[in-house]
Amino acid sequence: MSKQFINEAFWIRAIACLAVATTHAVDTTLANYEYSANQLEEHLLILIRFMAYFGTPAFVFLSELLLARSYPNYVPQGFFKKRIKFLLIPFISIGILFAFLISHSWQEGLRQAFVHIFLGGYYGYFILIIFQFYILHVLLQKYLRNWSPKIALSIAFAINVLYLSFFNFTEPMNNAAAEYIWLRGYWVPFLGWIFYFVLGYYCGKNFEILKEKLFENKKKILLLPFLSIALIVVLVLTEILHVVSSKRVDMLLYTMSMIFAIIAITMTIDRVPVFIKIISKYSFNIYLIHKFILYLMPTIDFLNPLLYFVFVYMVAVGGSIILAKLLSKVKFSQYLIGKQLVVPNDSDLSRGKGS
């Protein structure tokens, strides 16, 4: 199959990557200014973090959208081997390195490394989710092709809502295992992301129709993110939902609205800006590296929390790109920080074609 690209995929990947970095930059800021930030600054940072939580589920959506576009009937030979080499091995490498970075002894580092790799206990857990959906894509694509999209999406949405609601609205049993599962263990199983997978599949298979529908309803589509984030704010302020992560049940609507809004806006832009191409190219590297930089960032007393957030955010994203570029010259670096993605010239971009 010849390599083809769609502009909107670069936008979604870049914006989702920046959103993930935003959530972690806010976490770093709130941790470093825990006792010095005023209430307004703290609430604004928390709002920014909630607005950026769509990043990780958007990656799940995009991964399946591209699979459905590129491999509608079968995956090529070597599909899993390539992804093990350049996704799973970097996940393991970074998981081990980050474990020892945050630990104070070899024993603690080994224990953390086990949790990171086998339980998805660090920010790289997304890779474990993606691999589950690679397997599901192979197993389910022949069924998804024949099922009604409305029925399949409705069932997937219901499963996703029920799964997240169980962990969002119930308390764990009084033991360490249950507490870990309720804290973050439930993040890894595919049931918590199944709607994004099915949505990505049908959007990938029917991308032209999707764009037509978004164009016809553009004003409504652009309003949806504001309405869905307003719902999240209400649920937070009323303390109906206490979960602080992208695994909130209300994030299903917000993420879908953000994805559709991004496509609706960017499908009218003929050329992908250089900045978006760069972020898209280094997105996986940024994803793996930026937390190392944020973890090492000290408090800067002369900056207020909001300026500090902007500063560490720019250092984390920019530093990740620079470090990835430097390390790319080192042999086998792709097994540590992953590969840079292919970014085509403008002449190679074909509107509405799969990548």
Rank of each mutant, 00 (worst) to 15 (best):
S2C: 01
Q4R: 11
F5Y: 15
F5I: 07
N7W: 00
W11G: 01
A14H: 06
A14E: 02
A16T: 06
A31M: 11
Q39K: 12
Q39W: 08
H43Q: 15
L44T: 14
L45G: 04
Y53D: 00
T56H: 04
V60W: 06
F61C: 01
F61D: 00
F61P: 06
E64W: 11
E64C: 07
L65F: 15
L66P: 05
Y74Q: 15
P76L: 13
Q77P: 00
Q77V: 11
Q77M: 08
R83L: 10
K85C: 05
P90A: 02
P90D: 04
S93L: 04
S93K: 08
G95H: 07
G95Y: 04
G95C: 06
L97H: 05
F98Q: 06
I102F: 02
I102K: 15
S103M: 11
E108Y: 05
G109E: 12
Q112F: 13
Q112Y: 13
Q112A: 15
Q112I: 13
A113D: 03
I117Q: 06
F118E: 02
G120N: 07
G121D: 05
G124V: 13
Y125C: 03
I130A: 05
Q132P: 11
Q132R: 14
F133W: 05
H137G: 06
L140W: 13
L144W: 15
W147T: 01
S148M: 11
F157M: 12
A158N: 01
I159E: 00
V161E: 00
F167D: 00
N168L: 03
N175W: 12
A176V: 10
A176W: 11
Y180P: 00
I181F: 10
L183M: 07
L183G: 06
F197V: 04
F197K: 09
V198Y: 12
V198H: 09
Y202R: 03
C203V: 15
C203R: 02
N206T: 02
F207W: 14
F207M: 08
F207H: 13
I209T: 14
K213S: 13
L214M: 12
F215H: 12
E216F: 12
E216M: 13
N217R: 14
K219F: 10
L223K: 13
L224A: 15
L224I: 10
V234A: 09
L235G: 00
V236C: 02
L237E: 14
L237M: 10
T238W: 07
V243W: 03
L252T: 05
M256Y: 13
M256G: 06
M258H: 04
F260M: 11
I262M: 08
I263G: 03
I265E: 01
I265Q: 04
M267R: 12
M267S: 07
M267F: 10
P273E: 08
I276S: 02
I279N: 02
K281L: 09
K281M: 13
S283I: 07
N285F: 01
Y287W: 10
F292S: 02
I293H: 02
L294M: 08
Y295L: 05
T299M: 10
N304W: 12
N304R: 01
L307I: 08
F311M: 14
Y313T: 01
M314Y: 08
S320D: 08
A324D: 09
K325H: 14
V330Q: 07
K331N: 12
K331C: 04
K331M: 10
F332W: 15
K339S: 08
L341V: 01
V343R: 02
P344S: 09
D348M: 14
G352D: 11
K353M: 09
G354V: 09
